[in-house]
């Protein structure tokens, strides 16, 4: 997190030096600062920073991809002449336990194919998820555990 601030500082310095605070220039400065930090990664211990940044990026990419996929699936299902629906609510045992991570996971689940988080239990151990195709809840559970939950744990642990 500290290195992140250093990187922003480097980007601002670049903006100051080149005399322009336009978005493109600041992003360029940020990339330059990242390159500089990458060069001295052994000295300042920024190796973890790049791994973490990469994981956050891959989480964001997974999220956008799943959102597009899920909207597409909803579209196909809605437009098909006879909808073969098997909706239902299943319980999902949470492995993440921090409030922030639970919120993120619940939001990600809502925006992914056919699932919508409805409620979380009082002791924060179970998430209740509405699935539009609930014929095989076990494989849906496995998908969430192997996809988003694992990525969240990688990115924020």
């Amino acid at each position: 997190m500290n290195l992140y601030l250093v990187n922003i500082l480097l980007a601002l310095t670049w903006g100051l030096m080149s005399g322009s605070f336009s978005l493109v220039n600041l992003i360029f400065g940020f990339v330059l600062g990242m390159g500089a930090l990458y060069l001295i990664r052994e000295q300042v211990g920024s190796l973890g920073y790049f791994q973490r940044a990469w994981r956050v990026l891959s989480l964001a990419w997974l999220f956008i991809w799943e959102l597009v996929l899920s909207a597409w699936k909803v579209a196909v299902m809605v437009m098909s002449p006879n909808m073969n629906l098997k909706p239902g609510i299943f319980a999902y045992p949470l492995r993440v336990d921090r409030d922030f991570e639970i919120t993120l996971l619940a939001n990600l689940i809502t925006l992914t194919p056919g699932t919508l988080s409805v409620d979380v239990s009082e002791d924060r151990s179970t998430l209740y998820v509405h699935a539009i195709d609930c014929s095989d809840p076990d494989s849906t559970r496995a998908d969430i555990a192997e996809g988003f939950e694992r990525k969240i744990m990688e990115a924020f642990r």
Binding site: L67, V68, S70, A71, V74, A75, M77, V78, M79, M83, L85, P87, I89, T110, L111, G114, L116, V118, H130, I132
Partner: peptide
């Protein structure tokens, strides 16, 4: 598609799928 979805799907919970995904996207 989201608008068609909230008309065709059978209950409010299923309709939420259409509105929250296709609508947001």
């Amino acid at each position: 598609v989201a608008a068609i979805g909230i008309n065709r799907l059978p209950d409010v919970y299923s309709r939420m799928h259409a509105a929250s995904k296709a609508g947001t996207l």
